[in-house]
């Protein structure tokens, strides 16, 4: 049933984007749209090709991806750790959670002037911003996930003689996982957004830097290419989380296909 529906809607879904792309290319070719406003799709494609050949694009892509992953691992790791701590221990929760909830309301991008004063435009500045950005969604959703594990299942585990360690591995962690993965998806969105801003404002390499550099020379094709690459990276990260959800939440009818 769902297979049939997919095969019917898939070609339909591609008609609109295809038509828009054709319209865009046609208006550029016919001179209705100045290349200074919006470059033609084909020239974006051409600059992607030349930048790949001269190594600029792969280099900057690698730099940006490494920053994103490092920031995610640091911020997400700390967020997950503190989420577990506050979720599993009432004392830690009373000690840490009110402060963290307060700090959460500070928009992390508002810290950019301070971050530049602290770290300059070195690598630490961007790592700090990305780590701070991904920290909160992962922290909050880990805490929320653990708090919302069915207490009846925890009681069952205790009555059936599970050790605290086993109870955590068999009941609490799997029960919190759906919420943790939601946190991860939010975090990935914030990760790219933070990186775009950080690289555009203060960087000597990376996709954002490539875009700002291109702006100085009015190379709108490279700017549009950078935007598209960010979109693609965002989509890629989202698909990766979806794959994780399908792998780890197979038991849940909502995630089964």
């Amino acid at each position: 049933m769902s297979d049939k529906r997919n095969s019917e809607t898939l070609p339909l879904a591609w008609i609109m984007p295809g038509a828009l792309l054709l319209l865009w290319q046609a208006s550029s070719s016919l001179g209705w749209l100045s290349a200074n406003i919006l470059p033609a799709p084909l020239s974006v494609l051409a600059s992607a090709w030349t930048l790949t050949l001269d190594g600029t694009l792969p280099h900057n892509l690698g730099v940006s991806a490494a920053r994103a992953v490092a920031g995610l691992l640091i911020g997400g790791g700390i967020g997950f750790g503190l989420g577990l701590l506050t979720g599993l221990s009432r004392i830690s929760e009373r000690l840490l959670d009110p402060t963290l909830q307060m700090v959460r309301n500070v928009p992390h991008l508002a810290l950019i002037p301070m971050v530049i004063i602290w770290f300059g435009i070195e690598e630490e500045a961007r790592l700090f911003l990305v780590a701070l950005g991904v920290f909160f969604p992962i922290y909050l959703n880990t805490l929320h996930g653990i708090r919302n594990v069915d207490p009846q299942l925890i009681e069952m585990g205790r009555v059936y003689g599970m050790s605290p360690r086993r109870l955590f591995r068999r009941v609490i962690l799997p029960g919190a996982l759906p919420s943790i993965l939601v946190g991860l998806r939010y975090a990935l969105g914030i990760m790219w957004l933070t990186l775009i801003v950080a690289e555009t404002i203060a960087a000597k390499s990376g996709i954002g830097h490539m875009a700002m550099n291109a702006r100085e020379f009015m190379r709108t094709d490279i700017v549009v290419l950078s935007i598209l690459i960010y979109a693609l990276l965002g989509k890629l990260a989202d698909s990766a989380t979806k794959a994780l959800e399908r792998r780890f939440l197979r038991w849940n009818p909502a995630y089964r296909r």
Partner: peptide
């Protein structure tokens, strides 16, 4: 006490474990 077992009003099965793994919970380690 290790030989006493309790059945609750609700089944209280772990939804993320297979039926066999849920039964194995009763065996502990």
């Amino acid at each position: 006490a290790a030989h006493a077992r309790l059945i609750f009003q609700e089944p209280r099965l772990l939804p993320w474990a297979s039926v066999a793994a849920n039964v194995a919970v009763g065996l502990g380690e």
